[in-house]
């Protein structure tokens, strides 16, 4: 059988919020390593990849590798039934038709049990090569969310330009142009609230703000976001989640015709 108990159940709620608007259905792959998911959005422009390591659960039991084919909207609805301080357990059989979510209140006075039907999902798994990125930008996740929100008022796309002076986000639309420049903080120790840039080569790429805005739904999961950019390659937007894993999004750049 498969059983994974997450004491900080609110994390599962937050992971769900971070993917449900982007991905309609996906397989949650459960192995001894943990729970992972890889899925493209419906238009196949972006990819989301997440890992919840087994050591983040207590206990974690996976007798046999299984894939739970899940409709995200249905799972999100069930996750909304869990309170933020609930302990969440995910449970299924070795050849499952259903998955069970159990929500326990902290004092265990209330136990909710939701059983959800699984789907057969024939998903395409993409191999993501290790890439030498031209620039790796770390910044407060809330700052990145704010930039995406603000520039969405100006245009559909954001041009991310990174050079020795810092990083600039710019958008252009019918009403004009918006530019937001961030300088690297003097103290480079990657503490919360810092902007740090590892620059190998100056780089400038354009991305659809609609998708970056979807990615910022992961903001409640982490204080810092990392943008890894490389000429003509997809940007990797990573939120590392303390003690359990990560969620990464990849978005193909827009190419000028």
């Amino acid at each position: 059988m498969f059983e994974a108990r997450l004491v900080q159940g609110s994390l599962m709620k937050k992971f769900m919020e971070a993917i449900k608007d982007l991905v309609k259905e996906a397989n949650w792959d459960c192995t001894g390593t943990g729970i992972s998911l890889q899925a493209m959005d419906t238009s196949h422009v972006s990819l989301v990849s997440l890992l919840l390591r087994s050591d983040g659960f207590d206990p974690y039991r996976c007798d046999r590798n299984i894939s739970l084919g899940i409709n995200m909207e249905s799972m999100a609805k069930i996750m909304k039934c869990a309170s933020n301080d609930d302990v969440i357990t995910i449970r299924s059989e070795d050849h499952p038709d259903n998955v069970t979510f159990v929500f326990e209140s902290p004092n265990q006075e209330k136990v909710c049990d939701y059983e959800m039907k699984l789907m057969d999902i024939d998903s395409e798994h993409l191999g993501i090569p290790d890439t030498e990125y031209d620039a790796i930008i770390s910044m407060p996740a809330s700052e990145f969310q704010r930039i995406c929100r603000d520039l969405s008022n100006i245009g559909d796309s954001v041009k991310i330009t990174c050079n020795k002076d810092g990083v600039q986000f710019s958008a252009q639309g019918d009403t004009g142009i918006g530019k937001i420049a961030l300088k690297q903080n003097a103290v480079i120790d990657k503490e919360d609230g810092q902007v740090s840039i590892e620059l190998n080569d100056p780089v400038s790429l354009t991305f659809a703000l609609r998708y970056l805005t979807f990615f910022t739904k992961a903001t409640p999961l982490a204080s810092t976001v990392t943008l890894s950019v490389s000429a003509k390659n997809p940007v990797a937007v990573e939120y590392r989640v303390d003690d359990i894993g990560y969620i990464r999004y990849y978005l193909a750049p827009k190419i000028e015709e």
Binding site: E124, H125, I128, P129, Y250, A252, K254
Partner: peptide, 14 residues
């Protein structure tokens, strides 16, 4: 004009 490319064109299918 900017062309949006598909993610699959960058990552190989396994």
């Amino acid at each position: 004009c900017e062309l949006q490319t598909l993610i699959r064109e960058y990552f190989k299918s396994q």
